[in-house]
């Protein structure tokens, strides 16, 4: 008992069940080499598993990005300003799938790809994700995950030294229909 008390065991991260989705808030800091300061943004995210990840930035200004199976689309003031197809950039598909798996607590495939297991640390888990892929050009060198009940932080480290740190909070699990409705309602926040 004494031993157990000295080394508290962290319960396993939550995994989304069938028909469930997750939403919450994020804060992102982009650290670009030789820039004066990190570029900060924050907003809400909505993960509808096997369908879409909706990334709605509210600060420094409102924009909305929908990442589905085929690619991503970024919208500004209701108009699409960027479209990127995963056919052209298949490495981004892996990043998208990784974000979906990590946000939904589905760590097993990531552990397999990384060739390592989640490591317990300070009542949390961590994972350094440096996948072995056959010939894919990845948009990152490696990812560092920090996991509580949900994914708490992901650090995306680029090969040139740039890195993004995204911190998640207020995650809520709900039926897919509810999260989808919330995502639709969130559009109304656009000023």
């Amino acid at each position: 008992m004494i031993i157990l008390a000295a080394f508290p065991v962290r319960s396993a991260p939550l995994i989304l069940g069938e028909g469930e989705a997750v939403m919450g808030r994020f804060v992102q800091a982009r650290y670009l080499r030789d820039f004066d300061r990190p570029i900060l943004s924050e907003g809400e995210f909505f993960l509808l598993p096997k369908s879409a990840l909706i990334w709605q930035t509210e600060k420094p200004f409102f924009s909305r990005m929908v990442i589905d199976e085929d690619g991503l689309s970024q919208g500004l003031k209701g108009a699409e300003v960027t479209r990127l197809s995963f056919k052209q950039f298949p490495g981004f598909k892996l990043l998208r799938d990784t974000l979906e798996n990590s946000l939904s607590g589905n760590w097993t495939p990531l552990e397999e790809m990384a060739g390592t297991k989640l490591l317990p640390a300070d009542e949390k888990y961590t994972l350094r994700f440096s996948p072995k892929t056959s010939g894919l050009t990845l948009p990152f060198a490696y990812l560092n995950f920090e996991i509580g009940d949900f994914l708490e932080t992901v650090e995306i480290v680029k090969s040139n030294g740039d890195r993004d740190v995204i911190t998640f909070s207020d995650q809520k699990v709900a039926p897919v229909a509810d999260v989808s409705a919330a995502a639709d309602a969130a559009k109304e926040k656009q000023p």
Partner: peptide, 20 residues
């Protein structure tokens, strides 16, 4: 729109743009 687009693209976690 072009100014904001650049900012959106720079902020995206799936961004093609690097520091250089």
């Amino acid at each position: 729109v072009l100014v904001d687009r650049a900012l959106v693209q720079i902020l995206s976690p799936l961004s093609l743009a690097d520091a250089e």
